[in-house]
Design a protein around this nucleic acid. Sequence first.
RNA 1: GGGAGCAUAGCUCAGCUGGUUUAGAGCAUCUGCCUUACAAGCAGAGGGUCCGCGGUUCGAACCCGUGUGCUCCCA
Length: 875
Amino acid sequence: MELSKNYIPNETEARWYAHWLEKGYFNSKPDGREPYTVVIPPPNVTGVLHMGHCLNNTIQDILIRRARMQGKNACWVPGTDHASIATEAKVVQMLREKGITKSSLSRDEFLKYAWEWKDKYGGIILQQLKKLGCSLDWNRVSFTMDEEYYRSVIRVFIDLHRKGWIYRGKRMINWDVKAKTALSDEEVIRKETRQQLYHLRYQVVDSHATTPEYVTIATVRPETIMGDTAVCVHPKDERYKHLHGKRVLVPLINRSIPVITDEYVAMDFGTGALKVTPAHDMNDYQLGEKHRLEVVDIFHEDGTLNESAQILVGQDRFEARKNIIPMLEQGGYLVKTEEYTSEVGYSERTDVVVEPRLSLQWWVSMQKLSEPALNAVMEDSIRFFPPKFRNLYRNWMENIRDWCISRQLTWGHRIPAFYAPDGSFVVAENIDEAFTKFQQQGSGVRMDEIWQDNDVLDTWFSSWLWPFEVFRGYSHPGNKEVAYYYPTNTLVTAPEIIFFWVARMIMAGYEYMGEKPFRNVYFTGIVRDKLGRKMSKSLGNSPDLLGLIDQYGADAVRFGIMIASPAGNDILFDESSLEQGRNFNNKLWNALKLVKMWEGRQSATADTTPDFATDWFANRLQQAKAEVEEMLEQFRLNEALKTIYSLVWDDFCSWYLEWIKPGFEQPMDTGVYRKTIGYFEELMQLLHPFMPFISEEIYHLLNDRNDDLCVKLTAAPTPPSPHLLEAGELLKQVISALRDARNRNQLKPKDTIQLHVQTANTTGFAAIEHILAKQVNASSVAFTEQTIADSIVVAVEKDKFFIVSEKELDTGNLKAELLKDLEYQQQFLESVKKKLSNERFVQNAKPEVVDLERKKQADAEARIKTIQESLQNLG
RNA sequence: GGGAGCAUAGCUCAGCUGGUUUAGAGCAUCUGCCUUACAAGCAGAGGGUCCGCGGUUCGAACCCGUGUGCUCCCA
């Protein structure tokens, strides 16, 4: 069979993924084996695959594939969340394109469109994960608005309300006065806006003063002064110290408000005095809470002024701003006006200026829920990787705030609260139950008067149930599946949602399952572009992932993203790492070609004398396997991949294959050949979780077989022989040193040399003589007990090598090199001697450490001697 | 304002329990090679004030304090 010049991934990848699916390798059912469970962090149903998903899902796939190859029952559950904000925005946009406004639709009509949209476009991302090679159990796709899941979310709400942990309370929200809806922070677009900063003076209330005194504040929103309930100054501001405890009058309406002090005020901004309008500014609201200020709301929901404003009632906020200025001017309150540019929030949907507004919202009290969740992480019952996130988690959990769970949207789980015309409400699963509850309370409300809350729940209020509800753990408590798969093993996610999601899943897990949702949490980094900017749609710096997979192959993409990705550190993504992945594919492919070339050139019988190269590689492989194993246990995935990469590229390709390569047109020893195939297989097995496609392909090309690498069980590594490993390292070192010497002396690769070896270990060198000769292009290798004249001398540890060549040697250059080395060695010896002459070191340090230093000394002394001899030899 | 983290080669980062570290890898750079698997390659090389200062220790890139710079999260 002819193998192509380079590896061509596309066809191979599609073929193997289809094969794995057909064999049902990814499907899991509870059985007698140990489970290994991962639930996917449900991607947003509107999402398309981006670099973050790529990293996150590659990691999960590595863990799952490894577990599968370890003989565990690996189960990776796919799914999506309904993403109320993002999806609703998409649906509204789609309707707009059809000329339909959301407000013209009933709730049910809108939801019908939303479901249509979801069925058509939702979950594209799941298909894309197949391209990446993700071994998800496709029989288990879940969605946070599946019928049963939906009901569970509602029941959890009811349960928490019954426990008294859900309540209604006021909160400042972003209000769109045109759409008459609340906006999430993500839907608010901040724009630099030119404004006027008005300096207004408020008269100080002081019955004793002969002339009126004023305090001047600066504001860009003069139309809100009627909502002012305090003026705030910095406690240390000397200019205003005399005003502490006094009151001032709001211009035009003459309401008396207190002067308060708070360090929040920036003394150097404006006049250093701040008007406080708790109903209409986020910061002022907090200040108001802190100082228990009155809240005066002066706006209707459409942004016009209401009766509380007393003046300009019925005017729009911007109209009022225009109109209040002459009034202030006339009254002598306007001190000056200056140009001012600052960021103002605009609605993403309607482009009107967002109005901060107080609104009644639903909240979850976090006190009781957070306690076991904090302990679980602090006591390492749930382990974080990297552990540095424990601090962050603790800090947040210890200062936890209540969770606002209502969203002024339609797409999502509708809040199960039912209201009577008198404003009273009950929480119930449906209207019939609600009616019954009203009756039980003795309310005379009629069924047709009851209405359900129009808002939906925060998407996280459904996804916090994810780790158990994908197994119906809440809807069917104690069922066989949840009993088997829960708690799950590892959650892989981004640190940015540690509070939104991770913490809350832990809370829900303990509250509803009485058990943690997962044992380990692996935090990935944030994928940034080369310049360190977060990848985002608006910046357009997120590469087209499917395009990259087409171009480089999924294995190369997986490699590229993993090799650059230490746990919990952000990664700066650069396409050059994909090139590295693609090159690695090619390296593997070419090694395969070389090995396949030998297939037909095998010797009739196998040579039974021990072969150094095969013995060494067998041991090197076991050593690396153990290292990889340990790194994976510690979630150091990128280091594990680096280890495999260098094992394949350096040890296998650059050293081993070169060592066993027969001479031109020579036969290949059949025993060596078979061992080599075996090693190659093991390498592919080790690599498989990281690069599943090419490893499976090569596994099948190495030999005809009926099994698949994907589900082949990995044997545990056996302890390697330290002696052989050392001998291998020595050989590499000698070859490199001799090649370096050749290079430095301008010997061309084709120029042959005669090599003389001076060593105490002649038997050791006899075993590797043929390798050595081949690797340094020596026509002969001889042992010697004397120094060889007119040669290049190379010392490696205690052995000396003399290179004799036909070419004229540049002795001046050689001498300079030797002198440089001599100086270095002498300095090194000095530092070691100094250490050893320090009595306290010899007394306090561990004996091994002291021995080590003694060995360093001996080696350095031997080397110095060799160098001095070499110098003499050069004359 | 509160919290967390980071600072090591030109770039991106490893360096785990302080002692095989006079500090490693990949990329980039330089030199020599189209050597029959691979130029998307091979063989080599150069490159460092481990952010500054102080301390602990026989010994510090690593621990402690402090300063500087940067990043993120919460408000």
